[in-house]
């Protein structure tokens, strides 16, 4: 991959062809890929390479925000059409050891830079995360509350259940469902914040009305 030598006319022509049907080097938003290639070009491409020129002018309009564009810069050879040989780093192959050493140290520098970039990104991510308000996990619970017998005052029972108040607990609609022999159970909906209210606590508080409540079950439990 790569565009070849972007300072030469041939390299620019490859870039021009590459950009004919693309707005950006990678994907559909301006990114560090565009900046990397942009910086590798000496100046605006000639007018006859209008695709490259259009892209150049467009990227130039992002110059002020270029540090904040997404993505991580890669070696120039990683961009561009797949069928063009990467010539940006290959020239050292035929040279002597000194050159290779030089290239090695170059590499190291680059990795340090990458490290710095990574750390910066991590810090950025952390600060972003801490700023974001924690999502409050809520659940919708359907409770079945069963009375002792058919003589239990269901209105009073419901009143008792609804009298339970806790931070993060909201009572919803309710209905009486016949279970047989004239006995009805109370089905009541509530929404709780997971961190603040648990079903154990609900059960404890509801069964505490032992004059009315025989037992309590969780009929349905849904995370919202």
């Amino acid at each position: 991959m790569g565009f070849g030598d972007l300072k030469s006319a041939a390299g620019l022509r490859v870039l021009n062809d590459f950009l004919a049907d693309k707005s950006y080097i990678e994907g559909y938003v301006p990114s560090q890929a565009d900046i990397a290639v942009f910086e590798a070009i000496a100046g605006p491409p000639p007018a006859e390479l209008f695709h490259a020129l259009r892209w150049y002018n467009h990227i130039k309009s992002y110059e002020k925000q270029k540090a904040s564009l997404p993505g991580v810069k890669k070696a120039l050879g990683k961009y561009g059409p797949a069928d063009v040989e990467d010539t940006t780093g290959g020239a050292t192959d035929s040279k002597d050891d000194d050159d290779i050493d030089l290239f090695g140290s170059d590499d190291e520098e680059e990795s340090e830079e990458a490290k710095k970039l990574r750390e910066e990104r991590l810090a950025q991510y952390e600060s972003k995360k801490s700023k974001k308000p924690a999502v409050i996990a809520k659940s919708s619970i359907l409770l079945d509350v069963k009375p002792w017998d058919d003589e239990t005052d269901m209105a009073k029972l419901e009143e008792c259940v609804r009298s339970i108040q806790a931070d993060g607990l909201v009572w919803g609609s309710s209905k009486l469902v016949p279970v047989g022999y004239g006995i009805k159970k109370l089905q009541i909906q509530c929404v709780v914040e997971d961190d603040k209210v648990g079903t154990d606590m609900l059960e404890e508080r509801i069964t505490a009305f032992e004059d009315y409540v025989q037992s309590m079950d969780v009929a349905a439990f849904n995370k919202i």
């Binding site: 707005s23 209008f50 020129l53 259009r54 892209w55 002018n57 467009h58 309009s61 992002y62």
Partner: peptide, 10 residues
């Protein structure tokens, strides 16, 4: 659109 990325330019 030959020399523009968006209809209004950039």
């Amino acid at each position: 659109l030959e020399d523009k990325v968006y209809l209004a330019g950039n």
